[in-house]
């Protein structure tokens, strides 16, 4: 069982790293980029004895309490068998 957690900055929170990355990408010649926002991605390997429902609940809690800071970040959890 694997849980994937995506952490992204909330809309409106400044992302200077994203802006710097966008600038570099544009220097490569890519045009038409409205915005680049940098985020974090976590892969959590869970014991196979845990069912999907409990895996999701556990990953949601980890995301809420540790992986993301809800003041500045949003998170999304995916669980795959």
């Amino acid at each position: 069982m694997k849980a994937k957690v995506y952490v992204t900055l909330k809309a409106g929170v400044l992302d200077p790293q994203g802006k710097a990355i966008q600038h570099s990408v544009e220097l490569l010649g890519y045009g038409g980029i409205a915005d680049i926002r940098q985020g974090k991605y976590f892969e959590i390997a869970l014991d196979d004895s845990i069912d999907q429902e409990h895996a999701r609940a556990a990953a949601e809690r980890m995301a809420r309490e540790v992986l993301a800071n809800p003041i500045i970040e949003d998170y999304r959890v995916e669980v795959e068998a």
Binding site: V13, L14, P16, Q17, N69, I71, I72
Partner: peptide, 16 residues
């Protein structure tokens, strides 16, 4: 701030 004893958060300096 991370512990919730003070409100808000400290993020990357605007000039990086």
């Amino acid at each position: 701030c991370e512990a919730g004893l003070l409100p808000g958060a400290l993020i990357r300096n605007r000039n990086l």
